[in-house]
């Protein structure tokens, strides 16, 4: 958290240096221009609605992925299958190309960004959580198995709280990723909703002040979301991940 925060602070300082302290520059807009871009986005392009739309999409993708992940990994047969048989790294394909393809298939479906983002995010989250499970020392399993007659039950009881905390920790770490997928899908979607749609307008008009204001809004939203997930994770799983 602190490392990310430091990066954001540095970016903001550089940004301030360029647009506020160096008003003579001809490339970047000044502070006043950025603020009026935000105001215009709010009044003419329903910034609040679009921001909430993206935020809802992000949260829905995370919640659906988390529920599916917990259901899949808490089932011992599925978990063993996923750990031993599925090599997730083999599925690393140029996902941007695939998003284009999926978007083309689901072009008339309003919830396509939600669906596509879940299709890409769930395997990512599964891979990261499985990596975490594989780091659990073997002697924990030995100790747990010796206390149970049904050895599978011991494994599930041992892993269940760990899976929950690991997945939440991975969500916290991958918020930038899920946010980017959603924005990208909204950008391609013909339904004109979300920050992705506003980004598309920005590119259409090639307006740097709009681009900077949208980036700042995204940055702020991700930071707040990260703080929220960090709080939830520490509240319910107070041990170190």
């Amino acid at each position: 958290m602190s490392k990310n925060l430091l990066v954001y602070v540095v970016i903001l300082l550089i940004f301030h240096l360029i647009i506020f302290i160096l008003p003579a520059n001809q490339i970047f807009p000044n502070g006043h221009q950025v603020l009026s871009a935000v105001e215009k986005l709010y009044q003419d392009y329903h910034l609040l609605f679009n921001l909430l739309y993206t935020l809802t999409n992000v949260m829905l993708v995370i919640i659906v992925s988390l529920i599916l992940l917990v259901l899949l990994l808490n089932n011992s047969s599925v978990r063993k299958f996923l750990i031993k048989k599925i090599k997730f790294e083999k599925f690393v394909l140029p996902f941007i190309f695939l998003i284009f393809l999926f978007n083309h298939w689901f072009v008339s479906f309003e919830y396509a960004p939600l669906l596509i983002a879940t299709i890409f995010y769930l395997p990512y989250l599964l891979k990261k959580t499985i990596d975490g499970i594989e780091l659990i020392p073997k002697n924990y399993f030995d100790a747990a198995k010796s206390l149970f007659i049904e050895k599978d039950k011991a494994e599930s009881k041992l892993l269940s709280p760990r899976i929950n905390s690991l997945s939440l920790f991975e969500v916290y770490k991958s918020l930038n990723f899920v946010w980017s997928i959603i924005i990208f899908c909204e950008f391609l979607s013909p339904f004109e909703k979300g920050l992705g749609y506003l980004l598309k307008i920005t590119f259409q008009y090639w307006s740097i002040e709009y681009l900077i204001s949208l980036s700042l809004i995204s940055l702020l939203s991700i930071t707040l979301l990260k703080a929220f997930f960090h709080y939830i994770e520490k509240k319910f799983y107070p041990w170190e991940n």
Binding site: P137, N139, D142, A143, S146, Y237
Partner: peptide
């Protein structure tokens, strides 16, 4: 049941003392 105490520590870091003992 014959509990096994392993060479490396085997208390589970994601459970507190009470939860570990009642595991």
């Amino acid at each position: 049941i014959i509990p096994y105490l392993s060479t490396s520590p085997s208390s589970f870091p994601w459970l507190n003392v009470s939860e570990n003992i009642s595991f």
